[in-house]
Simulated scan of single mutants.
Amino acid sequence: MQNKIKIYNRIAAILIFIGLPILFWALGDAPKRSVLKESISLLTLVSFSLMLMQFYLARSNRKIIKEHKMSRIINWHRYLGYAFVTVLLFHPLLIIVPRYYEAGVDPTDAFIQMLSTFDNPGIILGIVAWSLMLVLGITSLFRKVIPLSYKTWRTIHGILSLLFIATASWHAIKLGRHIDTPLIIFIVTAGGIGILLLLKTYFLPSNKKA
Score class of each variant (00 low, 15 high):
residue 2 Q to N: 15
residue 5 I to A: 13
residue 6 K to I: 03
residue 6 K to R: 12
residue 7 I to N: 14
residue 7 I to S: 10
residue 8 Y to S: 11
residue 9 N to K: 09
residue 10 R to S: 13
residue 10 R to I: 15
residue 11 I to N: 12
residue 12 A to P: 01
residue 13 A to L: 07
residue 15 L to C: 08
residue 15 L to A: 14
residue 15 L to R: 08
residue 18 I to D: 07
residue 18 I to E: 05
residue 21 P to L: 10
residue 24 F to Q: 08
residue 25 W to S: 07
residue 25 W to A: 05
residue 25 W to K: 12
residue 27 L to A: 13
residue 32 K to G: 14
residue 33 R to L: 15
residue 33 R to Y: 14
residue 35 V to S: 11
residue 37 K to G: 13
residue 43 L to Q: 00
residue 51 M to Y: 01
residue 52 L to D: 03
residue 55 F to V: 02
residue 60 S to M: 04
residue 61 N to V: 00
residue 61 N to Y: 08
residue 63 K to G: 11
residue 64 I to S: 11
residue 65 I to D: 03
residue 79 Y to Q: 01
residue 80 L to E: 05
residue 80 L to A: 05
residue 84 F to N: 01
residue 84 F to Y: 11
residue 85 V to F: 12
residue 88 L to F: 10
residue 88 L to C: 06
residue 90 F to R: 10
residue 91 H to D: 11
residue 92 P to N: 06
residue 93 L to A: 12
residue 97 V to K: 09
residue 98 P to I: 10
residue 106 D to Y: 08
residue 110 A to L: 05
residue 111 F to D: 09
residue 113 Q to K: 15
residue 113 Q to P: 09
residue 114 M to S: 12
residue 115 L to A: 04
residue 117 T to W: 10
residue 117 T to Y: 10
residue 117 T to L: 05
residue 120 N to L: 09
residue 122 G to M: 03
residue 122 G to K: 04
residue 126 G to M: 02
residue 128 V to W: 10
residue 131 S to H: 06
residue 133 M to I: 07
residue 133 M to Q: 05
residue 136 L to A: 03
residue 140 S to K: 02
residue 141 L to H: 05
residue 143 R to N: 04
residue 146 I to A: 00
residue 147 P to S: 10
residue 148 L to G: 01
residue 148 L to Q: 08
residue 152 T to I: 11
residue 152 T to V: 13
residue 153 W to A: 00
residue 154 R to K: 11
residue 155 T to F: 13
residue 157 H to V: 00
residue 158 G to C: 01
residue 158 G to L: 00
residue 159 I to R: 07
residue 159 I to F: 07
residue 160 L to H: 00
residue 164 F to Q: 00
residue 167 T to Q: 05
residue 167 T to I: 03
residue 171 H to C: 03
residue 180 D to W: 15
residue 180 D to C: 06
residue 184 I to L: 02
residue 185 I to T: 11
residue 194 G to C: 09
residue 195 I to S: 08
residue 199 L to W: 06
residue 200 K to R: 15
residue 203 F to Q: 02
residue 210 A to Y: 14
